[in-house]
């Protein structure tokens, strides 16, 4: 088996709540390799999003170790290159049009050129927004916004996509279409995917499914 893109060992994470601490993660282990898609399900507050934040190095575990593509550290720039993130609430920059939003990861990496513009256009075309390049987020529907966010996540050719309930704000039909795109694009580019979702149907479409309960993976299928 290929080296994992992300490897987590014995992750613990707790948060203060009044005069005590709530343990959200209690020893989570997970390896995800290139081309693999893993869904994480669990009740609200089970620590799914916390785990994803640890995977994205947006937060640090209390203990445990994460190795990203062979390295135990993940500086911001490397995060931008290695990981693409899709949020439930899209988080598009309202002042930028669809194309500029997709170009943002590239711009932050300091690599905006003709090639990257062409890639942004191609990605938007791939998610069905070729005609909406210059539309601002407030001129797009929810599904279209999430598709822009999806294109943005793929912009820097990441090895790993972290998707946090990407269909949570969409109706069933639109959610289905977005999920189709997400899985299809990841498979096409052999990009590893960690998908946090409540939706059992969407989870069923990933190559591996895990459930988070009481801070631990209780069932790995």
């Amino acid at each position: 088996m290929a080296d994992p893109i992300i490897s987590a060992r014995a992750l613990f994470k707790s948060f203060p709540s009044g005069d005590r601490r709530i343990e959200v993660l209690r020893g989570v282990d997970l390896d995800v390799s290139a081309g693999e898609s893993v869904s994480i399900r669990g009740e609200s507050g089970s620590g799914k999003s916390t785990l994803l934040n640890l995977f994205a190095a947006l937060d640090a575990p209390d203990s445990g170790e994460i190795v990203w593509d062979g390295s135990a550290t993940l500086a911001p720039r490397r995060r931008g290159a290695l990981i693409g993130i899709v949020f439930q609430s899209f988080y598009l920059v309202p002042e930028l049009d669809a194309r500029a939003n997709v170009l943002m990861p590239s711009r932050i990496a300091g690599k905006v050129d003709r090639e990257s513009r062409a890639r942004a256009d191609a990605l938007l075309a791939k998610v069905g927004l070729a005609e909406r390049l210059h539309h601002l987020p407030n001129q797009l529907s929810g599904g279209e916004r999430q598709r822009v966010a999806l294109a943005r996540a793929l912009m820097n050719r990441p090895k790993l996509i972290l998707a946090d309930e990407p269909t949570g704000n969409l109706d069933e039909h639109t959610g289905e279409a977005v999920m189709e795109l997400l899985l299809g694009l990841c498979a096409e580019t052999s990009t590893a995917l960690v998908l946090v979702t409540h939706n059992a149907v969407h989870a069923a479409r990933t190559s591996r499914r895990v459930r988070l309960h009481d801070g631990r993976f209780v069932a790995v299928e």
């Binding site: 911001p76 290159a81 988080y91 932050i108």
Partner: peptide, 12 residues
């Protein structure tokens, strides 16, 4: 939220 987003996208 955008400040968080920029960090997620690789900003220092």
């Amino acid at each position: 939220r955008e400040i968080g987003l920029f960090a997620a996208l690789g900003a220092e």
